[in-house]
Simulated scan of single mutants.
Amino acid sequence: MPLIPSYKPLDITLIRRDKLKKHLRDELSISGTTLAKMSNRDFVSLSVIARICEYLNCRIEDVVEFIEE
């Protein structure tokens, strides 16, 4: 079975850091389109994930995981 990304770990990390996706959009200039892709479990670039990790001071697994479709 193919693997698809799940950004549920990001939601949990944002809650722990008292942040919102709006902060990612405003402070990191992540586009609304990219945030929509994440909500739809689409792939986003690794550079976006790296920027989020740096901003939240977390590991990649705190942002994305792969699940079976």
Results as ranks from 00 to 15, higher is better:
K37Q: 11
E54H: 13
K22R: 14
S6H: 00
D42E: 15
I30V: 03
K22E: 12
P9E: 09
E65Q: 10
P5S: 05
S31D: 05
Y55G: 10
L35N: 01
E69N: 07
L28A: 09
K37N: 11
M38Q: 09
R41T: 03
V48L: 07
V44G: 00
F66M: 04
E54C: 13
L3W: 08
E68C: 11
L35H: 06
L56H: 00
I4K: 12
K8S: 11
D26I: 06
R59C: 11
A50S: 09
L56T: 06
D42Q: 13
R17N: 15
L10Q: 08
R25L: 14
A50G: 03
S31I: 03
E61K: 08
K8Q: 12
Y7K: 01
A36D: 07
V48P: 04
I30H: 01
E65G: 04
I15H: 10
K8L: 14
L56C: 07
T13Q: 00
S39W: 09
A50H: 02
R16N: 15
A36N: 08
D18Y: 05
P9F: 03
R16S: 14
E54Y: 10
L3D: 04
E27V: 04
E65K: 11
N40K: 15
S6T: 12
I15E: 14
K19P: 09
S31E: 02
C53S: 14
L56R: 00
K22T: 14
K37D: 08
G32P: 06
M1C: 13
L3C: 04
S39I: 08
P5W: 00
I60L: 12
E61R: 06
F43V: 09
S39A: 14
R59M: 10
Y7C: 07
E61L: 02
K19N: 07
D62L: 01
Y7F: 15
Y7D: 07
A50P: 03
C53K: 08
I4Q: 07
I30M: 02
E54T: 13
R59D: 15
T13F: 00
